[in-house]
Design a protein around this nucleic acid. Structure first.
Lengths: 120, 120
DNA sequence: GCTACACTTCGTTAGTTGGCGAAGTGAGAA
DNA sequence: TTCTCACTTCGCCAACTAACGAAGTGTAGC
């Protein structure tokens, strides 16, 4: 029940859903997500922490950068089912579609060059 | 997205989950759920309203009584998938198991006789 | 060592949510 | 019609949450 509520609470915020679905096509560092969501880094970091607590997302540190990716096959059954449900249900969502387009541009940039991409 | 968030928010509260899962074995009137959850009727009514807004639950009026049941096959695809996910994932939950036992007793009583059942 | 940078944690603030009791609504009983 | 009762709506309060900027942490480069 505790774990289940962690998952549903993590999924009950639009910003977190956008961050989660942004990871569909592979891992991203925090600055990519800041560029996508246009919120303060501290805010985005906290949202990702909620997703990690629920085990929907995993964090990987590489030097100064923090990379996030969707939970994989090692995640608990409830998490895998939740991810399948979310991705299936939101496949056609308009907001997420727009995000995917912006992400395609952001992904081309290394974290180091992201400042230039923010303009687009 | 809007509908999806309505579902996840409805599912992100323990009391609502208990009410939702209580309906697994068939419809119940509000007073049954008040007996189960031991909260003020106004509180339970509000929780059920949230579940109805998300279309996870349907309401039926019969005289003075309001009966609630899980959404059926006519519900949107996202709702049906959500219900399947919730029921599967929480099948073994301890709290819900205890609720199911108490419900079995409560179900024997007509709404009119519920006051007597509350003692048990 | 020191600085620069990516990220996280902390403290504050505004808005949301869950709880209650009181008042309102509407159907059945008297 | 009037009363009773099941439920809903309203108004309030306490607890929680999302947002921010400031301060803290740790790594890479000088």
């Amino acid at each position: 029940m505790r774990e289940f509520l962690a998952i549903t609470k993590a999924l009950s915020d639009e910003t977190r859903l956008r961050a989660l679905l942004a990871l569909r096509d592979g891992e991203l560092c925090l600055c990519h997500l800041v560029g996508l969501l246009k919120l303060a880094p501290s805010t985005v970091s906290k949202h990702l922490d909620v997703l990690c607590q629920a085990r929907l997302v995993e964090r990987r540190k590489d030097g100064r950068w923090a990379y996030f990716r969707l939970a994989d096959q090692n995640a608990p059954r409830a998490v895998r089912r939740a991810l399948r449900w979310v991705v299936q249900t939101l496949a056609q969502d308009a907001t997420l579609g727009r995000d995917a387009k912006r992400l395609a541009a952001l992904r081309c940039c290394d974290p180091k060059e992201l400042a230039a991409c923010y303009k687009s």
